[in-house]
């Protein structure tokens, strides 16, 4: 058993390739609209509509939001699996989307871990082949022997027995499968790993193991993480900075302690207030109850996208879309005309 990792308390200098705090991944003005096929009557789905993000070396950026808010589309653009309609993603100031596709060395440095380990691992490949595939693609091992050694090393790094590398994914439990996915992502020595709901398919007793593994890997390897989840408490636990998404846009972003401690955007407040707490004594506390469901991204409301469910909304919110503006010094921004500001 690995020793329990120390909690992610704040951005600290970490060992690793890049200097601490230096941006490794930067997204500017990302837009992605999915146009429907002949069967869709609703029209285009505006999944991501203008997102700017910055990920610094060695930090974890948590992205929270409800289903349909565009967080998975954003994740796929951040690794270059999806090409944005507008905007650009840059890895250490080098653009992703060139005429010839995403350059191979950028793809090597930016990896992804998927939500469902069973569908993201080929059932007919052994663990050895799965983890070795990126090594082969990027020609990182000289011969078969070096390949096996490296795969064994990666498996031990994520807490799996190297002797089991000739087995198939179905022979592993859910948590172990997710570890295989993580080992595959680590194979190319990435600087950035984008994790899309990496623990939400896992049982709660196993979820903590994987969350701790991420924290430990970041501490030892200095890799920067984008951690996407709908579970607010998990994101709080792993992230240095947090971005809250609503219908394709960022509602609020800032240091995790600030966003959770003094949320500025009404949507963030509502999310935090609605999260069930494992404390029966807190029952009956006053909670912000939002009316209705999130609107469809096919026809987002005009003005502020949240105004249809917001208790603070006025006419101004229905007309003018608020921009992401600072609410306090240290990079805490919110997109709300009536954001709570520390007085």
């Amino acid at each position: 058993m690995a020793p329990p990792p120390e909690p992610a308390a704040g951005p600290v200098a970490r060992p690793g390739g890049a200097g601490p705090g230096e941006p490794v991944l930067r997204a500017t003005g990302l837009h992605k609209t999915y146009r429907g096929g002949i069967l869709s009557r609703g029209g285009a789905v505006r999944a991501v509509a203008g997102v700017d993000l910055e990920l610094r070396a060695g930090e974890t950026l948590g992205i929270v939001g409800e289903s349909g808010c565009g967080k998975s589309t954003l994740a796929r653009m951040l690794v270059g699996l999806e090409r944005p309609d507008q905007g650009e993603v840059a890895f250490r100031d080098r653009p992703f989307f060139t005429r010839g596709g995403v350059p191979r060395d950028i793809r090597r440095r930016v990896q992804m871990v998927f939500q469902d380990p069973l569908t993201s691992l080929n059932p007919r490949m052994t663990v050895l082949d799965i983890v070795a595939e990126p090594l082969r693609v990027h020609r990182l091992c000289a011969d078969a022997r070096a390949l096996r050694d490296r795969v064994g090393e990666l498996l031990s790094l994520v807490g799996l027995q190297p002797e089991r590398m000739n087995r198939y994914p179905h022979e592993f439990s859910g948590g172990q499968r997710q570890r295989i996915g993580i080992a595959r992502a680590l194979a190319t020595e990435p600087d950035v790993i984008v994790c899309d709901e990496p623990v939400s398919a896992l049982d709660m007793s196993v979820q903590a193991q994987v969350v701790n593994l991420f924290a430990e890997l970041q501490r030892t390897l200095g890799v920067a993480l984008v951690f996407i989840a709908h579970d607010l408490a998990v994101v709080r636990h792993v992230s240095h900075r947090v971005a809250v998404m609503y219908l394709g846009r960022l509602a609020e972003t800032g240091p995790a302690a600030e966003v959770y401690g003094s949320p500025a955007h009404p949507y963030t407040m509502a999310l935090l207030s609605a999260a069930p707490a494992a404390k029966p004594r807190l029952r009956g506390r006053s909670r912000i109850m939002l009316a209705g469901d999130p609107p469809s991204p096919v026809a987002p409301p005009p003005g502020c996208r949240f105004h249809t469910r917001c208790w603070k909304a006025t006419d101004r919110c229905a007309e003018r879309e608020p921009a992401l503006e600072p609410v306090s010094g240290d990079g805490h921004d919110a997109a709300c005309h009536y954001a709570e500001r520390p007085s």
Partner: peptide
Amino acid sequence: LLAAVPDLDRPASELRAIPGA
């Protein structure tokens, strides 16, 4: 189980994972 669930109010506390499955 209670120790393995992250707590919104006490983020700095460590998650105590249950070994095995």
